[in-house]
Amino acid sequence: MTPLSSTFLGERRAEVDDAIDLTIDRIAERMKPFGGAFADLGAAMRRTAAGGKRFRPTLVVAVFEALGGDADQTPALFPVAASFELLHAAFLMHDDILDHDTERRGVPNVSGEFRAYAERMGTDAAGAALLGEAAGLLAGDLLLHESQRLIALAPVTPDARERLLDLLDEAVLVSAAGELADVAHSLGDEAPEAAAVLAATHDKTAVYSFAAPLRAGAVLADAGEEAERALATYGSRLGLAFQLVDDLIGAFGSAAQAGKAEGADLREAKKTALIALARASAAWPDVRAALADAHTGPIAVRRAQTALGASGARAQLESLVATSLADARAVLDGDVLPPAARTLLAALADAVEARIP
């Protein structure tokens, strides 16, 4: 999604980055006087939040302008856009704890940095893990609070502030429900229903990454309730397609596309929507046997990929992606949204489709 972010943000990227950096700097500076580990945590948060695709703030800004909003006359635009990036950063930090990950994009995350911090103090492995997870949890909490603070202090009307806070509230609530369901599905040998896995897949990403940022842009542009409802539907369907494509990439994408080893989801035995569909097929015994060996190396990963293809699960998942994209594109029919917004959203759907491995 990086090319899309660059295309639609253009010169606005610097303004988005400035709003995010200003907020992170404010938190880090407030943490400095405490000294010790807390001051170091502020520095780690600054490093972790630097860069990135800025995809969610891109959606806020791009749809705002496509709906006729004037950025130069809307000082709340970039702080509100930044709030969705901080929300994303908070969720990543908490997600890393749930997954016991100590790296992201090949470098130590906050938890990884503080594990190393504890080890330098001479702490044993259990103590290092405890400090690492505590640091990741607290960093995520601080960013989650700051995301809400940005909207609470944004220079908007009371009505717009209430609507924006409601969007953030829904995004947090739905995402939490999805994360908990995802963890529950990963436990034990009992197979969750495919519909339940698809619901969790939607809830983890679609609202906070797509529907809420798009609707926030509409609120700031004063685009009206009908346009906001259309964007909510579009974002929900596109967000599901995006996450399902991520499942395909995690199983079948190249290392360059996935940002990690090819077939990483298969190696790690993740119970994704793809696996749920395979479980419901007659070929599940063959797939299960192939997946059991996937952690052993590239040849075993290839066997698992072949078994998943033969089971029909890959084709089914691709069909679900196509249906979700068609539902999203259907929202663009008619004249509820202006031409510039329809063009933007059509390009976004095309970009999601282009990610299919």
Rank of each mutant, 00 (worst) to 15 (best):
L144S: 08
L153M: 09
R13N: 05
M121P: 07
P192F: 03
D96T: 09
A307S: 15
A280S: 14
R104W: 12
A212V: 13
G250F: 03
P357V: 08
G42F: 12
S175E: 10
H202S: 04
A200K: 03
L67T: 02
A199N: 05
T272I: 05
A341F: 05
V80R: 01
I151K: 06
V321W: 06
L150W: 06
V174N: 07
A341L: 04
E65I: 06
F84V: 14
S311R: 07
A313Q: 06
S281K: 11
L164S: 09
A216S: 09
A278D: 02
F210T: 09
G263L: 05
A177P: 02
R12Q: 12
A211F: 08
W284T: 11
L244T: 05
R342K: 13
T23C: 14
L244Y: 11
L277Y: 14
F55N: 01
R329D: 13
A276G: 01
F84S: 00
K270H: 12
T2A: 05
A294H: 06
F55L: 15
R30I: 06
V172A: 06
S311E: 02
V16I: 14
G253F: 07
M93Q: 10
P357M: 11
A89H: 03
A139N: 00
A273M: 06
Y117L: 07
A232R: 00
T74F: 05
S209V: 11
L291T: 03
G36C: 03
R267E: 14
L87E: 02
R54T: 04
V207P: 01
L240H: 04
E113L: 09
D293R: 09
A49T: 15
I356E: 14
L240A: 07
V207K: 02
E190S: 08
A49C: 15
R215G: 15
V107I: 15
A322P: 01
S175K: 09
G253H: 01
L4T: 04
P108T: 12
R54M: 09
G297W: 13
S254H: 03
V183H: 08
G334C: 02
L344T: 00
D124I: 07
S6Y: 00
G312P: 10
R56C: 10
R104F: 15
R329Y: 05
R46Y: 02
L348F: 15
G140T: 13
A290G: 08
A269V: 00
R161P: 13
V352C: 14
F84H: 06
D18Y: 03
A230E: 08
G106I: 13
G250H: 04
R163H: 10
D159P: 10
V352G: 09
L86C: 00
D293Q: 15
H94M: 06
V245A: 02
A116P: 05
G42P: 09
A276M: 00
L244Q: 02
E119K: 00
A304S: 08
A218S: 11
R56T: 13
A126W: 07
A81Q: 08
A199Q: 12
R267V: 15
L308F: 06
D141Y: 10
K271Y: 14
A276H: 01
E226I: 06
T7N: 10
A14R: 14
A176V: 13
G235C: 11
A255K: 03
G217T: 07
E318N: 00
